[in-house]
Simulated scan of single mutants.
Amino acid sequence: MDAIRQFNYHANQVLYFGAGRFTELPRLIDEIGNNVLLVHGASIMDNPKWDHFLDALAKLSIRTHELISEGEPSPEAVDEAAEEYRRKSVHAVIAVGGGSAVDLGKAVSAMIPQKGSVTDFLEGVGKKKHDGYKVPFIAVPTTAGTGSEATKNAVISRLGKKGYKKSLRQDNLIPDIALVDPELTLSCPHEVTAASGLDGLTQLIESYVSVKATPVTDALVLSALEGYTRAFEGVLADSGDIGARTWMSYMAYCSGAALANSGLGTIHSLAGELGALKPVPHGVLCGTLLAAGHRANIEAMEKNPSKYETALAKYSRVGNLLAGKDCGLDGCGVLTGMLDKWVGELGLPKLGEAGYTRQEMEEAASRAENKNNPVELDSAARVKILMERY
């Protein structure tokens, strides 16, 4: 029997999971402090639950400040908010929204106690290391895909030719509390539900085949994949299916927890480089590259199957789980076939339709990294992935 190698595992202090648990949030906030920053998207304000939430905070004499998240957080948005709410001495930051809102809240929480700009701490941009000291942070997702409620990084974006999508990352930046209430995802538009679901699936598979995968992250991924197909297809057919919504919320949380501890691969790196050029949602980019990226990995590893036996077996197991049956040795083919089917049926835009040029794709491929990919893909292989979706 092979020994289990050493590994670390980082997670929230507490996870509150289940339909209806949003009503517990005022009590959790009250236990931390009475002067808090609420970071949220605009859509949550149309949900009656939001007014009830604000009323409950008022009854507890909790002073609130609100910051509306508008798209993926920029360095300027983070710096301005950190400076303002540092002066206001907030006791906690609570983010209620999709991945962008949670990332904004996470970054502001992390930067309030720090000096300087968030750019000083971004991977590949700044030279400083964040010390992990932050204002207490609670994450409440309203979509099911990014898993940001369980991750240790906040993605900060600057669009344009010299733009970037880089992470502010430190083990202690995982939200102290994650409150996951699937009822908050019921109002998600169909296209957001679809893109988020494929984003989460990308994270699950990349984490599972990562060279840094551990028995704990594998267990998280497998538990989420077991019900993925029924839940994903169920929620696309009936947006009000709370059972399917609950499974998707569980999937998203597991994908975030897994990627926080085992890392991601080439698909996410490519999506990050493309996302820095144009305002295309990250989930859409991950979804559109999903089948092509994993097919490239499998084809590259099948050239030397003995070297990549474990990773190929994992890919095959994913295919079996998504298909809901034992497909034998053809699990890898079944997997890529199902991914092709979903990408096609959901009408995810090709990269050319999204406005990318061939030159932009070649440059993005050259800048992308393999990260924790199970096999080394060179720049030509990465270009091939992008061209398949051109």
Results as ranks from 00 to 15, higher is better:
8 N>L: 04
9 Y>A: 07
10 H>Y: 13
13 Q>H: 14
22 F>Q: 10
31 E>M: 15
41 G>H: 00
45 M>H: 15
46 D>Q: 15
57 L>R: 00
66 E>M: 11
73 P>T: 08
85 Y>K: 06
96 V>N: 03
107 A>E: 01
108 V>D: 08
112 I>V: 13
113 P>I: 10
113 P>L: 06
144 A>L: 07
146 T>E: 08
149 E>C: 10
156 I>W: 05
170 Q>W: 13
178 A>P: 01
178 A>G: 05
181 D>P: 03
186 L>T: 13
186 L>S: 12
189 P>R: 08
191 E>C: 03
196 S>M: 06
204 L>Y: 06
214 T>N: 05
227 G>A: 07
231 A>L: 12
232 F>I: 11
235 V>S: 06
237 A>Q: 14
242 I>A: 09
252 A>M: 05
256 G>L: 12
257 A>N: 09
278 K>C: 01
285 L>A: 05
287 G>I: 02
296 A>T: 09
297 N>R: 06
301 M>I: 07
303 K>Q: 15
310 T>M: 09
310 T>W: 02
312 L>M: 09
314 K>I: 09
329 L>P: 05
337 G>S: 12
339 L>S: 11
343 V>C: 08
345 E>N: 15
346 L>H: 10
354 A>H: 02
359 Q>C: 06
360 E>V: 01
361 M>A: 01
361 M>R: 04
363 E>K: 03
374 P>I: 01
374 P>S: 10
383 V>N: 00
384 K>G: 08
389 R>P: 01
390 Y>D: 13
